[in-house]
Design a protein around this nucleic acid. Sequence first.
DNA 1: AAAATTTCGTACAATATTGTCTTAAATATA
DNA 2: TATATTTAAGACAATATTGTACGAAATTTT
Lengths: 147, 147
Amino acid sequence: MLSNTCKYGIRAVIYLAVNQIEGKKIGIKKISEELTLPAPFLGKILQMLAKKKMLASTKGPNGGFSLAKDAEDITLFDIVEAIDGTDVFEQCMIGLKICEDDKSKEEKCPFHEKSSVVRTKFYNAFKQQTVKDFSTGIKNADEILTF
Amino acid sequence: MLSNTCKYGIRAVIYLAVNQIEGKKIGIKKISEELTLPAPFLGKILQMLAKKKMLASTKGPNGGFSLAKDAEDITLFDIVEAIDGTDVFEQCMIGLKICEDDKSKEEKCPFHEKSSVVRTKFYNAFKQQTVKDFSTGIKNADEILTF
DNA sequence: AAAATTTCGTACAATATTGTCTTAAATATA
DNA sequence: TATATTTAAGACAATATTGTACGAAATTTT
């Protein structure tokens, strides 16, 4: 469904949202330890998100990453788009050429209509769910993320 | 979403349903040419499905593969289950440990409820769509599959 | 200014997925 | 029975994904 890379990214962004303190950054080392995933790999992922202006980063002591915008303005869709791209929300689920975008409805496969409905709901769910929903929607927010 | 292997398998099974003639088999070579995918790789995939009794195969001249049951009794779900497994229909979409099956509803992540609803619809779509729907639901059935 | 810290960027390495090749086994036909 | 055809099975190879290492750049502290 989503790549591991993308799932890691989602967990890390949620972690930042849950643990953010105004004006402070959190280092890769800390994040990777808490989420028990490889620090160098996480670094790469967060770099990607920083390039897309979702995160801010500063080097040096006390450096690290922070959200570049309000948690309520970052959706799961935004993170997936930045890491995996939007194919998963758009492509024919069973990989049929006939279902390409420019085809008329009649030319598409017998499964297309039904699967499109589901995929749209799937898309909406990711588009509506903000990172803030994770930090406010649970008693012990860190529990969401630990493995 | 689904692996390429799985998408190939789906296309091949649909091909067999569309082109089947009572009592006849269709060879890998023929199928792979029509679907423009590598014959040896396709062979492996069809072998998997034959082991699971979804397809029947015979060696030798005029050998090949055929559906082992009625096209209306093979669902997209069955094919996915045989090739990729059922994780895609079951696992937490964003890979959170907290969402494991044995947890109570309250312990799951804030996204869980919404994503479960979508995933169930997704599951139902695959469970309801039979291979026969593809062979009857379109004028020129082969057009579905060609690349 | 020097040293320490920590991200950035690139190159490298391991693993998983996808694809290929070869030989063996089974079946049909001559 | 011999030969041709075609799947079965497993080893091998290429590619994509995932993960690691290391030097460079930036920032803070001393």
